[in-house]
Structures are given as C-alpha cells and as structure tokens.
C-alpha cells in the first residue's frame, strides 16, 4: 500500500475513482431527486399522507368509504347517502348552512374577544377602536353581525323544510324537539350579543326585552301573583337576568358570559345530540318514496322501531 501511494498513476486512479463515484452519486441523486419530485406531485401516495389520513388514497369504493369513516371531522356523515339527497332541492342545505355559520361565528367571535372588555368604561370604546384602528376590525365585526342574522334566517328555513317534508315524524320526533331548543338558543345567542357594543340600539333593545321579564307570572314583580310571592324589583327574575335592577355594568358582564361561554357550550352539546340523532334515526329522512293512503297500517301500540344505521346497505 505505501508503494502504491507513492505511485503517481494510482494517485490519479484514486482521484479518478473519487470523480467516478461523485459522478455516480450525482446521477443517483438526480435520479432520486427526480423520483421524489414526481412523488411530490402525488402527495396522497406518500406515507406522510397515510399517517395523517389513515387510508390509502385510491379510487376504490372501500377507500372512499374509509376516508369518510376514519376522519374525525367527516365521520358525522354516513359512508353512503341516498342518491337523491345529494341534490339541493330536498334539504336546501339549510341545516348545513346553519352549522357552518355557527363555526364562522365562533371563529369571528373568538377574534373579537381579543379586542373587547366587558366593562362599562371600555366596551363602547373597544368597538370604536375595533372599527377604526384594528386591521380588518370593521370587516370582522360586520361578518359577525351579518352571520348572526343569517343564521337565524337559516334556522327558520331549516325548520320550515323539516316541517314541509314531514321529517319530524317517527322515528325523528325527539330530534325535532332538540332542534326547537337549538332554534331558541340561536335567538338567545343573538339577543345576548345585542347588548355587548353598549350603544343605544343594544341598550334599549335589551331594556325592552328584559322589561317583559318583570311581568313573569309568580316570578316577576309586576306579574300576576308576583307581589304575593314577595317579588320586588330587587329580587325577581329580571334582577337575576340583569344582575341588578337596571341595565348596567352587571348586565353587560352577564350578557357577555352568556353570549361567549354559557350558551355556546349548551349549543355545542345540543348540536352533538342533534347530529348524532340524525344518524341514529336513519340518516336524513328523504327524499323517500311516496306512500299511498291505501297503505296506512293499523296503529299497533307501542310499536318498536328497529333502526338500520344509514349507509349500511
């Protein structure tokens, strides 16, 4: 070895070898890079993709079903749905739009909370600040406001559609009741938000609204039976709502907590029940084949309802 080291030829040989291997390496690297670049064009084929989505991305019925069933966000859906239910004309998409607006409102609402103090000194100024100084603050507030109004309209139309298609009938009776409560909660959410800018509009709207609570039978100081129950303006149900006998700092704080924490939590729970029951009651109700009057069966009571989870063929 030492002699060889002294040899000029073999030196060139080593150099050559190194050059060769470098060239080879360059080639394999380019090869690899090319190959990986082409792979990047189809990221859904990579192990990274599989590790996130848990299923292979193939145009196979099995994987199409799995991509819905094994995804925490998508698995609210069944794997398969009634072919005619995918069209707009039956559901009008109103339930989905309502839920989407709830998400939009949560998102914009959380952002708004960063700029808002629920105190008499700050609240109104925070809105001015939000409207004039915060980047996109005005857009944020506008979106929150209009999404809230839109959500109420969407809830009403959703209820109207469910009624017109008779979707509250057996076995979906209870889910209709959950839906009615969700509608009431939606309106309460909107109403509690009304006071938060602490301007004349909200103040008087809430004054008018809570003044009715004075007249609650038995529990309001001006309601029938109220005085006999010992109700005064300082201990009745209106006092409990406002945290005082007038719409003031405590009312603002209570409206804020109801609006941002309490009611959204309650809504989230009812939403969970609502969606879960949609699935358990056999998916959405239709469009079902029409039934004829001659096919009405005699009522047998109580009739057990055996349900087939939707999408199970």
């Amino acid at each position: 070895m030492p002699e060889e080291n002294g040899d000029g030829k073999s030196k060139t040989g080593v150099l050559e070898k190194a050059k060769d291997s470098a060239a080879a390496l360059r080639e394999t690297l380019t090869e690899k890079a090319k190959q990986q670049a082409t792979e990047l064009k189809e990221p859904e084929k990579t192990q990274l993709y599989r590790s996130i989505f848990r299923v292979k991305h193939d145009e196979e019925p099995r994987n199409r079903a799995l991509s819905v069933l094994s995804n925490v966000f998508f698995h609210l859906h069944p794997a398969k749905v009634n072919r005619d239910a995918t069209k707009y004309n039956f559901t009008w998409g109103m339930g989905g739009i309502t839920f989407y607006l709830f998400i939009v409102l949560t998102f914009t609402g959380v952002l708004l909370m960063f700029y808002y103090h629920p105190s008499k000194v700050q609240a109104f100024r925070d809105i001015l600040y939000l409207e004039n100084d915060v980047p996109f603050g005005k857009l944020l507030r506008n979106m929150h406001r209009w999404a809230a109004h839109l959500m109420i309209i969407a809830v009403w139309l959703h209820m109207f559609r469910v009624f017109m298609t008779g979707s509250y009938k057996r076995p979906r009776e209870f889910n209709w009741c959950v839906g009615v409560l969700l509608m009431v909660l939606t309106m309460l959410l909107s109403f509690t938000g009304y006071l938060l800018p602490d301007d004349q509009l909200g103040f008087w709207a809430v004054t008018v609204g809570t003044n009715m609570a004075r007249a609650t039978p038995l529990l309001g100081n001006e309601g029938p039976g109220g005085p006999q129950m010992g109700m005064t303006p300082y201990n009745d149900v209106r006092f409990a709502l406002l945290g005082g006998s007038i719409v003031d700092a405590n009312a603002l704080l209570r409206a804020y907590i109801w609006h941002c924490i309490a009611i959204p939590l309650i809504v989230a729970i009812f939403l969970g029940v609502h969606f879960w029951r949609v699935r358990k009651d056999g998916g959405i109700s239709g469009p079902a084949p029409v039934m004829l009057e001659s096919e009405i069966k005699e009522e047998r009571s109580p009739r057990p309802v055996i349900l087939r989870p939707s999408g199970m063929g």
């Binding site: 199409r64 819905v68 859906h77 794997a79 072919r83 239910a85 995918t86």
Partner: peptide
C-alpha cells in the same frame, strides 16, 4: 340507490 358521501355529498 345510494352513492358515496365522498365526493357526491361533501363536494356540495
């Protein structure tokens, strides 16, 4: 009678 939720419903 039934179609896959993905993509037929979810794209809507």
């Amino acid at each position: 009678r039934e179609v896959h939720t993905w993509p037929y419903l979810m794209r809507m």
